[in-house]
Amino acid sequence: MITRAHKMLFLVMLLACVIMAAVLIRLRNRAQDRLQAEASAAPPSIAEGTSTPPRAVTLYVPNDLDGSLTAVERNLALPGDNNAEARVLLENLVEAFHAPGSTHPIDVASGVNDVYFLPVPQSAGGGQEAVVDLSGALAAAQPSGIEPETLTLLAVMATLHANMPQITEVHFLVDGQPRDTLAGHADLTRTYMAAEANPEPTPVGAGR
């Protein structure tokens, strides 16, 4: 038996539902607009950056069999600004992972969305923290294990620190989001000291 009061109550609740849905949809649209605005204000792509003549850089490529990092010299035309320079360095590093006969194979063609820089407050020498935004594709293709995941992080840190010594700290994101681990092991919640990956004088993580 549905009384008039029941009908009224139901209509009021229905109206409340419609209003709530409308408000939430509007909020979502606003958030989307904001994200799009932020994305369009992001730094220009590498292609648009001004390139300088090629210079010698050092990439640190891991060897999974002995846990070492090997210095590989390359001549690269690096763009003028820091973000794009770091991104070109790391894209070349990921290409080395992907290359045939790689000693640290990761089956992905492109692995870094972006690199951002933040000042390190307590740093005397104007040190910077590099926030490396890895692609979800790299994280998905990264072989799971303490050693392979640690070596990927160390290779990124060593390559950044060797070529851009102002980078003293490194923090990792995946597709713009914080993540617990790279592929189930290596901790991505912490900020790393870039010098921890210093491959000199003995190879990092080298065995006997």
């Binding site: 846990g67 050693e147 640690t150 992080l153 901790d187 065995g207």
Partner: peptide
């Protein structure tokens, strides 16, 4: 090493 199993040593972030 005594068992002739190769070993790599490192510091873990895990």
């Amino acid at each position: 090493a005594h068992a002739q199993i190769p070993v790599t040593l490192g510091r873990a972030y895990v």
